[in-house]
Simulated assay, not measured.
Amino acid sequence: MASTEYSKELHIALLAVQRATLLTKSVFHSHAKGTLDKADASPVTIGDFGAQALIISALQHNFPDDEIVAEEEAKDLRENSKVRQTVWDLVQNSKLSDDAAEKELGGAIASVDSMLDIIDKGDSKGGSKGRIWAIDPIDGTKGFLRGGQYAVCLGLMVDGDVKVGVLGCPNLPVDDSQPLTEDIGADATDAEGKGVLFSAVQGKGAASRPLGKGSLANESTIGMKPISNISDATFCESVEAGHSSQSDSVAIANKLGITKPSVRMDSQAKYASIARGAGDLYLRLPVRKDYVEKIWDHAAGDLIVREAGGQVTDTEGKRLDFSHGRTLKENKGVIAAPKDVHQHVIEAVMSVLGSK
């Protein structure tokens, strides 16, 4: 992407997400691998806290006046010395291999107490004024635990409008042309050709680059795949039935003439996958009337898809509105599709949901 007024924000966001994503990978291999029986959620907890601490530390160093909306708060760490020490050890050992890049992020966090205070900097209420970053340190909890898809997510909103978005997807293939299947990245390994950073700046397009361990790798421009016949589309949705109505998705697919089964994936890796043309549609349909989406679950992915040539709205065709605090309280559900077929998809969605 060419230089823009947000070039520094993009650069720091990419480095911060890359460093945090490497921490989450180390957590998986050291604490989560081989089991889903995690009643105490400890691998997720330490990964969430560690990644959030690293990202906020980098943002505070570079943009000290910006507000931050993040999912976690340090209360549990303050009360649990064992988990606190585990997170601290991970944070201390999570450094980029490139000294210059590490210096740009502000280097190591000074102390355990500093780490706790940094985590709690994510307490902004959000809103429609000023510069606000939205962080989801591990989006896709169950995907993370089973070695499937998850994402480290960071978006910058200015006056309620998303300007910069970055996703770290360690288990997606680097090859943008690899077709989307449910078993993509099913085994979390450090094999060559896995791990991607996706990014976008408003008005400047979207890009992907291999996830590295030091300075940033070269980027490739990405774009959504044109659909000549919507019945041939591949659509993705959440793995968890509690996150999206899978029965409604089937009915919508039938209306559109889509015969291929959906690809079920966790996290904003779905946004990234359709943005680069590996898939075509992303449907997230309300499971109950009072369900409200969180801004950190959508800010980065929304921008990346739109900058890749797609359109993202709720189920009524309204743009996602990030100006109402920490939630998308003015929206219900998410529909992401190439611009030329988006209205067709919305009509099918409204027909199915309106008949209920």
Score class of each variant (00 low, 15 high):
Glu182Asn: 10
Val164Cys: 01
Lys121Tyr: 14
Asn171Val: 01
Val158Trp: 09
Asp175Arg: 05
Arg131Phe: 05
Tyr150Asn: 08
Lys125Ser: 15
Pro137Ile: 11
Glu182Arg: 03
Gly160Cys: 02
Ile132Trp: 04
Lys163Gly: 03
Lys142Phe: 13
Thr181Gly: 07
Ile119Cys: 12
Gly160Phe: 02
Cys153Leu: 06
Asp175Ser: 06
Asp123Pro: 06
Thr141Trp: 11
Asp123Leu: 14
Gly140Ile: 09
Ile138Ser: 11
Gly185Ile: 01
Gly127Tyr: 05
Lys163Pro: 11
Gln178Asn: 13
Gly127Trp: 05
Phe144Ala: 01
Gly143Ile: 10
Met157Arg: 15
Pro179Ala: 03
Gly155Ala: 06
Val158Pro: 09
Cys169Glu: 04
Val162Tyr: 06
Gly130Ala: 05
Pro179Ile: 00
Arg146Lys: 15
Ser128Cys: 01
Asp159Pro: 02
Thr181Val: 14
Asn171Met: 10
Asp175Val: 04
Asp139Phe: 03
Val174Tyr: 02
Ser124Thr: 05
Ser124Ile: 10
Lys142Met: 14
Val162Gln: 10
Pro173Lys: 05
Asp159Gln: 06
Ile184Gly: 06
Asp117Pro: 12
Lys129Pro: 01
Tyr150Pro: 13
Ser124Cys: 07
Cys153Trp: 06
Thr181Trp: 06
Pro179Lys: 00
Met157Phe: 12
Gly147Ser: 05
Gln178Val: 12
